[in-house]
Nucleic acid binder design. Structure first.
Lengths: 207, 207
DNA sequence: AAGTATTTTAATCAAATGATTAAAAATTAA
DNA sequence: TTAATTTTTAATCATTTGATTAAAATACTT
């Protein structure tokens, strides 16, 4: 399936397969799996509907590919930071917040899409990405345990992820509820890059 | 449409209309609008499929009713607390966190459902519930402005809502990623009732 | 250039879906 | 008790959807 295509072809044009995937990324992210029709994707790609089955066999299989990418995008940023043996807790938090917010500003719809779709097949995705290792056994978690022996480290993980991700998850509400424009939202997120590590620090100081 | 039903009938049995609504609340919450078939709701209600159109005219109209309830449930708890002229900022935060977590423990799927579905018609819902007033003009917001003149009050709103709501939004991930059981999750939420106000206090103390 | 393989196309299919229909059943009103 | 109204039922409908099909077009190999 496209395996025998010449190298020249690939470097010159975007392949049909990639065009479908790109369209799928956009449409699935916008509408979710159930509300997305294969026709929507074909239209967005400017291609014939039958090509979706030819290249990916089913809507479901196409979605799995996109979903894996998206989950990887959401968690991939944090894994190396959480598992760095060389940096301090404070350094990890600063780097994580900074990198995460940078990524999220480029993909503001990602968290809500992933969290929303993950409801329907949570075990598989979480296991394959070893999210459990990050949330239970990472270096950051060990550092949190040492720092605050009486409080479950998951609390701080929830706070850290909540403060970083929630503005994006709640963005439709903030936009249409509070009249928060794009520029204003971005400015707030830039401020949060600096504020969140300070807040986490203050929380770690609470007795 | 059920308007002329005797009072006796209503007090004795659950009405057909209410049975459909209750089934719809459950199925829509679990599957979302797009993936829910009218047949699913009819089966969950143990009723004939045609009754859905007889009583509610369309799947969409039934969903609107359920969605309004759910949005009201999500925001209704916080409005009186945010607008109480008599209580201090700290009191409001304590009461809000407490009431909110109580409500969320009984309806753990609510936030993700609302936030997920609100993407598809955000303006209407947010406007009708005057979410803007809560996020921009409530007494709590005024109190935050007085307390921290250099920081946009929305930051604290995001943190407060994020720390309260996010564990539920991310629950599938925490359950299947971190192996967090129901009991453990509830214990963490009970702890957070006390910890969140402390954390917010610490954050308000940051210079 | 002919033969082979792959990709693309447009039509079609089989099943599913929200909705409608007409009649039966139940309830209410006179 | 009959007539009128409302509710319920099961079948059916019209449309949509993911998927399949067969042929044409394109690309690759000899």
């Amino acid at each position: 399936m496209g395996k025998k295509k010449s190298e020249k072809q690939e470097s010159k044009d975007v392949s049909t397969e990639e065009r479908i995937k790109e369209a799928a990324r956009q449409v699935f992210t916008k509408k979710g799996y159930a509300a997305t029709r294969t026709r929507d994707i074909a239209e967005a790609a400017g291609l014939n509907l039958a090509l979706l089955n030819y290249y990916f066999r089913s809507k479901e299989k196409l979605f799995e590919i996109v979903m894996m990418e998206k989950v990887q995008a959401l968690f991939g940023v944090i894994a190396p930071v959480l598992n760095d043996e060389e940096s301090s807790l404070e350094e990890k938090i600063e780097r994580l917040v900074h990198n995460y917010l940078d990524m999220l500003m480029k993909n503001p719809d990602l968290p809500l899409f992933v969290l929303s779709e993950i409801r329907y097949q949570p075990e598989d995705l979480a296991r394959r990405l070893q999210v459990g290792k990050l949330l239970r056994e990472s270096v950051l978690v060990k550092q949190l345990r040492e720092r605050k022996k009486n409080i479950h480290p998951l609390h701080f993980i929830m706070n850290l992820l909540g403060m970083t991700l929630f503005p994006f998850v709640g963005r439709p509400m903030f936009q249409h509820g509070a009249g928060l424009g794009q520029k204003e939202f971005e400015a707030l997120m830039e401020e949060r890059k600096k504020l969140i590590p300070k807040w986490i620090d203050a929380m770690l100081g609470v007795r």
